[in-house]
Design a protein around this nucleic acid. Structure first.
Lengths: 337, 337
DNA sequence: TTGTACGCGTTATCAG
DNA sequence: CTGATAACGCGTACAA
């Protein structure tokens, strides 16, 4: 009998019924003190552990959350998952992982498998090229709640947590203005992304706050490829007004932009300054870290998204009371070198 | 009936027995063609999906692997987990995640929970301060196989995959010698770590291959803290022989060492060269990337460890045929800037 | 070719 | 206070 002991086994050895044992182990009030102690003693002796798979099955609940995200090797997501895990663990939930590697097909498959594994809920950050949301709609039928975070779909009735890029952008541009920059370029993302539009809004707002005119030709949408960045840089550097500072869409874009500037013989932080949005750990090992960076609080996003999901699962929050939570991004200065 | 359809339901609607339906769905050979098609048609129509939790329970198998590792925000581990996931997914296994955050207590708890969740097997990379292995020994009783990777325990009868630091170290030192360096410092780790001893052996070997004398005073063990690194640097820079190159234990150590050198007014790659072992993505955004880096193949380690575990689970490999696999590390040149 | 019966481990309901 | 029984969904040995 290398098989783990069961409740039945204990019952048999004690000439009790399985139900009594079960109750005794749960400290059910109306169980005789001595039977209870007896049972618990034997349980300890046999090193009894309840068979979770049986419980999951019986309770139709697995205490497992499915996490679907693009890439753990992106620092943003590995931070986010820690927030998720920590929050989930506190409520005795475990975490089932699936990386989409930014592939919509793979994402779809993962969601399907997780549904079959009967995860209690899902936390999702979309793959870049996900355009079809059928696999998420489908989950409603199975009563599996989903909370999206960071990369959220363009849908109405969903729960989500995401960073609001506007606040950080306002602060970023304001900082540059305060430092005397007047012609500020922005390498932005695709216009269909909310995050791009928020950056634009932030940019305008900061300018207006200083009663300065917003110049749309300085705010360039790109496809976020390296080539796109280089073209944008070329355009900005040959702008009729002399651009002295640049807000880059993210750290990867920033790196490419910096490199282009260097190739053009510009001196970073002298001829031209960069501000970016944090993806990479903004630490001492970056060659030319942006002078400041807009923090998006991945750990907190993970935490909050999980908290919402857990509230739904515990019934504290009705499924259809859609939580749409926005975390204000914030400008953080680079530590001096 | 928002409840998902079951095999019984299909049976009832078709006036069949549940077992027939079950068999039909599995394409059991001796089921009438037309019943089979009938069943499969209705199953599709009802969007039947087998209840995995029931299957898990019944088969005593969850098709889930538990992953216990210190920190996903370390690039090494996020790469490793991709190897794990990809390999696991190919065999229809899912991945249950637990980060120990380098805390032995937490590691222990995670292992316990995963055992209760009846994971089929475990992939583990130890927390730094794990000294007690009882929670792993315990798993034998439950017949849950464990494969360790990278940070492996000092135990006899275990499966593991780990990088061998010797090969890469030989190559690193050989490179430096070839470039004319004669006095090479090594900032090593605690002597009780296998990985430190392998570095020492590699260093000696490379020297001997060139018929050069190995000078132990150039190979300094440290505790891998920043302060430890700085002390080692101080010692090396004031060595009676002039140190012109340094092999650092890892990228974090390397960063600290470089910083110290800069503070001393040295020029990197001119007065002094660095070679390191890859933790950080060796890309263009490092300020002073080592000129070369010893690659430890995290993705492959994850792959191989998972492959071994799956072989054990499928019975291809006997539990007690202990696989102890070593992946040779290899020197990789830094891309030109 | 199909049906019956059973078991997996646990909890809940109902009875005593 | 405790026991018997059913139920969760599925697969499978045994019957027919």
């Amino acid at each position: 009998m290398p098989n783990p002991p069961t409740i039945k086994e204990i019952a048999r050895k004690l000439n009790l019924s399985a139900s009594t044992v079960s109750r005794a182990l749960h400290n059910h009030p109306r169980i005789g003190l001595k039977t209870r102690l007896q049972v618990q003693a034997l349980a300890r002796e046999l090193q009894y552990e309840p068979n979770q798979t049986a419980i999951f099955f019986q309770q139709k609940k697995t205490f497992t959350l499915g996490i679907v995200l693009p890439e753990l090797s992106e620092a943003f997501f590995s931070a986010a998952i820690s927030g998720i895990e920590d929050t989930a663990n506190k409520s005795n939930y475990m975490v089932l992982l699936g990386q989409s590697h930014d592939d919509a097909t793979r994402e779809e498959k993962i969601v399907g498998i997780m549904k079959n594994h009967r995860v209690d809920g899902l936390l999702v950050s979309l793959a870049k090229n996900t355009v079809n949301y059928a696999h998420f709609e489908m989950l409603r039928k199975y009563n599996i709640p989903v909370v999206f975070f960071d990369r959220i779909p363009d849908m109405q009735h969903i729960h989500y947590v995401a960073a609001n890029m506007e606040s950080g952008t306002v602060q970023a541009v304001a900082l540059l203005l305060q430092q005397g920059h007047r012609v500020i370029g922005m390498i932005n993302g695709p216009e269909k992304l909310i995050a791009s539009r928020q950056r634009t809004t932030g940019y305008r707002t900061a300018m207006q706050q200083q009663r300065l005119k917003y110049d749309a030709t300085l705010n360039l949408p790109t496809d976020l490829t390296r080539e796109g960045t280089r073209q944008a840089m070329q355009q900005l550097l040959s702008h009729k007004r002399k651009v002295t500072a640049i807000v880059a869409f993210n750290d990867y874009v920033s790196q490419d932009a910096v490199q282009y500037a260097l190739e053009q013989g510009l001196q970073i932080n002298k001829d031209i300054c960069f501000v970016s949005y944090a993806n990479l750990p903004l630490s001492s090992y970056m060659a030319f870290p942006p002078m400041a960076s807009v923090e998006q609080y991945p750990y907190q996003q993970g935490q909050q998204a999980t908290a919402i999901l857990l509230d739904i699962l515990s019934g504290k929050l009705p499924q259809d009371d859609y939580q749409q939570l926005t975390i204000d991004s914030r400008l953080v200065m680079a530590p001096g070198r």
